[in-house]
C-alpha cells in the first residue's frame, strides 16, 4: 500500500509540476463563470422572472442567487468531468515518452499502475474542483447566499462523486490513447460536448423529448441534477416565504432539471445518488478489467 501511495504521489507531483497544465485546468472553470455571468446571467434572470406571477414582489437578491446557482452548478457539473480529462494526461504522456517501459520493467501489476494513475488524477481533479467550489461559494456569498449547511455539505459530496465519475470515464478513454495529440483532441471534444449531453449548458427540459430520453440514460445527467438541486435548493425554498405557488416552484425546478423524469417516473435524489455511485463502480470495474485483459496493447509505448 505504501509503495502504491508513493507512486501515486509521483503522478500528482508531475501534474502540479506542469504549471501550464495546472493553471489551464484551474482557469477553465473561472473563465466559464465569468463568461456565463456576463452573457447568460440576464437571460437566466428573465426566465426566472417570467416563470413567477407578476403580482408577487420578490427581492432581487433571490433572483441573483437563483441565477448564480444555475451558473455555478453548470460550471461545477461540467468541470468535474472536463478537468479530469485535463489532469489524466500522465498515463498517455508516459506512453508517448516511453517512461511506461521503465515502469513496467518492474514486477508491479499493470492494474496497480493503472489504479495509481486513476488516484493521482482523482486527487488533482478534486483539488481543482474544490478550488472552483470555494470560488463559487464566494461568488454566491456576494450575490446572495441561501445555502443551508446540509445543502453545502451535499454539494461537496456531489463534487466528490462527480470527480470520481469523471476520472473513471477519462481513465477508460485514455487507456486507448497513445499521443498528446490524441489526448488534446479527446479533451476538446469532451469539453465541447459533455456540457450539452449532461444538461449543464442547456437544461434537458429544453430539449426534444426523444433527445431528452436518450440523455436520461447517461449517468452524468443525474450528477448534474444533484449539483443543481443542492446549488439552488436554498434560493428556491426562499421563494416559498413569498407565497409563490407550489406549481410555479415545480415549474422552475422542472425547467432547471432539479426534477428529472425518466420517461414518466420522477427520479428522487436518493435514486440519483444510487445511479451515480453505481456508474462509478461499473466504470472502475471496466477500467480494471480492461487494464488486466489488454495490458499488452494499452500499455505499449509508441
Amino acid at each position: 500500500m505504501k509503495s502504491f501511495l508513493i507512486f501515486t504521489k509521483r503522478n500528482i507531483k508531475l501534474f502540479f509540476h506542469d504549471k501550464g497544465m495546472f493553471l489551464t485546468s484551474l482557469i477553465t472553470p473561472m473563465i466559464l463563470l465569468v463568461l456565463y455571468a456576463t452573457f447568460l446571467g440576464n437571460v437566466y434572470r428573465d426566465n426566472f422572472m417570467n416563470a413567477l406571477p407578476n403580482e408577487i414582489d420578490i427581492p432581487s437578491k433571490i433572483f441573483d442567487s437563483l441565477v448564480g446557482g444555475q451558473l455555478v452548478s453548470s460550471i461545477l457539473a461540467v468541470s468535474c468531468v472536463t478537468v479530469a480529462f485535463c489532469t489524466n494526461f500522465l498515463m498517455v504522456q508516459d506512453k508517448s515518452n516511453k517512461t511506461i517501459k521503465d515502469i513496467l520493467i518492474s514486477p508491479k501489476k499493470p492494474y496497480l499502475i493503472a489504479f495509481s494513475y486513476y488516484l493521482g488524477s482523482f486527487v488533482a481533479t478534486l483539488l481543482i474542483c474544490f478550488a472552483a467550489l470555494i470560488i463559487s461559494f464566494a461568488y454566491l456569498a456576494i450575490i446572495g447566499w441561501y445555502f443551508t449547511f446540509i445543502d453545502a455539505l451535499l454539494l461537496i459530496v456531489d463534487i466528490f462523486l462527480l470527480v470520481l465519475f469523471g476520472t473513471a470515464l477519462s481513465s477508460i478513454i485514455n487507456l486507448f490513447l497513445n499521443t498528446q495529440g490524441q489526448m488534446s483532441a479527446v479533451g476538446t471534444i469532451v469539453s465541447a460536448g459533455y456540457g450539452f449531453i449532461c444538461g449543464a449548458y442547456m437544461p434537458l427540459s429544453s430539449f426534444d423529448s426523444n433527445v431528452k430520453n436518450v440523455f436520461l440514460f447517461l449517468p452524468g445527467t443525474y450528477g448534474t441534477s444533484l449539483v443543481r438541486n443542492h446549488s439552488l435548493n436554498g434560493a428556491v425554498n426562499e421563494l416559498t416565504k413569498y407565497n409563490v405557488p407550489e406549481s410555479a416552484i415545480i415549474t422552475i425546478k422542472d425547467s432547471l432539471d432539479c426534477n428529472l423524469y425518466f420517461f414518466d417516473y420522477h427520479v428522487s435524489i436518493e435514486i440519483m445518488y444510487i445511479v451515480l455511485i453505481l456508474s462509478i463502480i461499473v466504470l472502475l470495474a471496466i477500467y480494471v478489467i480492461l487494464t488486466c485483459l489488454l495490458k499488452d496493447k494499452i500499455f505499449k509505448s509508441k
Binding site: I6, F7, R10, L14, I103
Partner: peptide, 17 residues
C-alpha cells in the same frame, strides 16, 4: 521523469519494487 528531482524519481521507482 524530467520534471521531478533525482530523489523523487528514485523513490517512486524503488516503490515499484
Amino acid at each position: 521523469d524530467d520534471g521531478l528531482n533525482v530523489y523523487d524519481n528514485l523513490e517512486s521507482r524503488a516503490a515499484l519494487y
